[in-house]
């Protein structure tokens, strides 16, 4: 197992403090402004469209294990999609190749339908572990799209080469497709084959953006403060290296060039 060096410990403590400071600040009413993220705005539109057409929708939480940050963020989005679908009396089918995701997704969807007062609409068969490998899952998901005539597809989480295997068959069904991943190598494929794409850290911000909970919004503001610190370190590091050489005190302090 890797261990942190001093600089990493300082960075983690500093960033965590900034994020928690803003979270608790937001809980006291000091929220923040979140810029518009079109991909996330369209989730409601996609659910509404599927409901009007009387067709189900598919949510795919990526190919990462349940402890992957991208998968955790995707499960946050699933919670929102399931709640909205339950309120509108629509059906969400979750497909996955990760068995651990099955009970977690089942719990999230079941809770969403129960809270919306429609526990009768929840069907455990709609949380589907379809295959143990990514390419087989992509084929099986494409089959579900055809058989069920799904009208909206959501692909959120960590993705590998299967991104295109999942979204291209979906594109041909004419369903509205919204994707979000933290794997930048897959982003171009999603942009090419989906109607809306949520890029990189926007995936992590999705829960906050969708629920508008003070805790989540505070977390976003805290992230921005942390990014300002990173930006300041880069600027000071570049300037000090340019003016004083690569062995100046600041560079040694942050542990660069080791």
């Amino acid at each position: 197992m890797e261990h942190a060096n001093l600089q990493i410990v300082v960075a983690i403590v500093l960033f965590s403090t900034l994020i928690l400071w803003r979270i608790f600040g937001a809980r006291r009413g000091k929220g923040g402004y979140v810029r518009r993220i079109p991909g996330l705005n369209e989730i409601d539109e996609a659910i509404g469209r599927a409901t009007e057409m009387g067709r189900p929708m598919i949510f795919h939480p990526g190919v990462g294990e349940v402890q992957n940050v991208g998968t955790l963020a995707a499960l946050g989005v699933l919670g929102y999609v399931a709640r909205k679908a339950a309120q509108m009396g629509s059906r969400v089918i979750v497909t996955t190749a990760i068995p651990v995701v099955v009970p977690v997704a089942e719990d999230i969807v079941k809770q969403a339908y129960t809270q919306a007062g429609r526990p009768d609409l929840f069907n455990a068969e709609d949380i589907r572990f379809l295959a143990a490998s990514g390419d087989q899952l992509a084929l099986a998901t494409a089959n579900v799209m055809q058989q069920e005539g799904t009208a909206a597809h959501f692909f959120f989480g960590m993705y590998d080469y299967t991104s295109l295997l999942l979204t291209e068959p979906g594109q041909r069904t004419g369903a509205i497709q919204i994707a979000g991943t933290d794997q930048y190598f897959q982003v171009p494929f999603f942009i090419a084959s989906c109607d809306y794409t949520v890029i990189g850290e926007e995936l992590y911000a999705a829960s906050a953006y969708l629920t508008r909970e003070p805790t989540m919004l505070g977390s976003l503001v805290g992230q921005d403060y942390a990014k300002m610190v990173v930006l300041a370190v880069i600027l000071v590091g570049a300037l000090s290296t340019t003016l004083l050489g690569s062995q100046n005190l600041f560079v040694q302090l942050i542990g660069a060039y080791r």
């Binding site: 983690i12 940050v69 933290d182 930048y184 992590y204 805790t215 977390s219 992230q223 942390a226 990173v230």
Partner: peptide, 16 residues
């Protein structure tokens, strides 16, 4: 993107 994602990952990790 990486800087944003790493800070975002810390935030999601903390929240969970």
């Amino acid at each position: 993107m990486w800087f944003g994602m790493m800070v975002g990952a810390i935030a999601v990790g903390l929240r969970f």
